[in-house]
Amino acid sequence: MSDSIYELLRDALRAEEPAALATVTAGPTVGAKLLVRPDVAPVGTLGDPDLDRVVARDARGELESGLTTTRHYGTRGEAREHEVSVFIESFAPPPRMVIFGAVDFTAALVKAGKVLGFRVTVCDARAVFATRARFPDADDVVNDWPDRHLAKIGSELGPRDAVCVLTHDAKFDVPALVGALDTDAGYVGAMGSRRTHADRVARLREAEVGEDAIRRVMAPIGLDIGARTPEETAIAICAEIIALRTGRPAPSLRDTDGSIHG
């Protein structure tokens, strides 16, 4: 017996594989479904092969941008008609947060990142610090150099993903930033004082990183909310990630001056 659409969707969600579920919410076939996944044929039908074809195409597009929306069609998939309403729900894999540096702020940021739904990776070259026991909430704990790790996963990072560099150590954070700025990650932040960052900018220029790329770095990391503890700093970082994504004018430490801690 073949799996039902629900079972196929359930398995995709559990495996964190992308899927889009199209459901007719108004029209002649209310409740009819089409499950659309990358690289495999759609499963199910909305009641008409032409409608299925058009909706599958639209669903793949929605899935790529992680959008969930209701679209309207004619009964055979015609555009600009409103006989059929189709709710296309995208189940994109969770966004990723890659944290470089297994320091005392890291555990709090892992927790906050999990609350926001990120798949969180902690990466540190020092095996004694990068242990699963220290970061039980992380999805992955990687013992590697930042540039080497980014060479492996960098091409997977996109606008929904965040890279947070907490190493505080130029020998790790400059290669981490050079690697991160070479990805399409929507958020790149680096911890450290304003003086540390001025020094870091000089090192990034020496590494021939362009000025536009350097401007992408949110540093000092986080919103200017007077965060003191690791937990407060984690919230300031996560709030900055949200604000950058939504484009709302929240005061980033990068754009203010004065003391970082309240």
Binding site: Y6, T25, G31, K33
Partner: peptide
């Protein structure tokens, strides 16, 4: 809100 039985 679309409400349906899980029969699919």
């Amino acid at each position: 809100v679309f409400v349906e039985p899980l029969d699919w």
